[in-house]
Design a binder for these strands. Structure first.
Length: 197
DNA sequence: TTCGGGATCGACT
DNA sequence: GTCGATCCCGAAT
């Protein structure tokens, strides 16, 4: 299990290094294949830009290694891991994963159906986006603030073959002015679960 | 394969 | 009152 020292580092490094790692949640195991960095002090795309603190984003001001989960578009959730030191509001958004263990349980979380009953479309769109990640791993607002260093939810080293990493602009942050162009999104080149090419 | 609109509601102004 | 760190489905290409 990665410990708190992994998360207490510059957010861009954490976002980069999380690629290829394994996320473990209730016996479901998945490879992280796409991440985005949000760095509150300097990032207009971040909910905590310029240290702006609200009831929604307050979790980001805590010690790192915990989950920041918020609702979006009224019906979905996004899962982030808080990084860096206390009172420096930064996080990494997990945008896509590749589930490889206990996928039957994930399938019930995601579609309330068995793996064998899924269409090819459903298989292709299983966890290639932040809302889908949360559905698959059964994460919602009630999990906001839980430790990502616990038996219910943690990250461990992966076992992927060597892979290339692509840097790009982040997705759907058109309001973020100068921050729109920051290359703070990272994904595994060629992975089938990356949300947007 | 791509595009556009609807869903849905809490957070913020 | 406005809108979003999204997803899904149906229609058009």
């Amino acid at each position: 299990m990665l410990d708190i020292s992994f998360y207490n580092r510059p957010t861009l490094k954490v976002a980069y290094d999380l690629l290829g790692k394994t996320i473990v949640r209730n016996n479901i195991k998945a490879t992280i294949v796409e991440t985005e960095a949000y760095i509150g002090p300097i990032d207009k795309a971040c909910h905590a830009y310029n240290f702006h603190k609200t009831s929604r984003n307050a979790i980001m001001f805590n010690d790192c290694g915990i989950a920041y989960i918020y609702q979006i578009y009224g019906m979905y959730y996004c899962f982030n891991i808080v990084t860096e030191e206390k009172d420096k509001p930064c996080a990494v958004l997990i945008r896509a994963i590749d589930i490889f263990s206990n996928s039957e349980r994930a399938s019930n979380n995601r579609y309330n159906k068995s793996m064998s009953d899924l269409s090819s479309y459903q298989l292709k769109h299983f966890s290639n986006g932040p809302g889908k990640v949360c559905m698959s791993l059964d994460l919602n607002k009630s999990h906001n603030g839980i430790k990502v260093i616990s038996k219910d939810l943690y990250i461990e080293e992966g076992s992927l073959e060597p892979f290339d990493i692509v840097k790009s602009k982040r997705i759907n942050i058109n309001y973020a002015e100068d921050a729109i162009d920051f290359l703070w999104r990272f994904y595994i080149k060629g992975n089938k679960n990356v949300s947007v090419l």
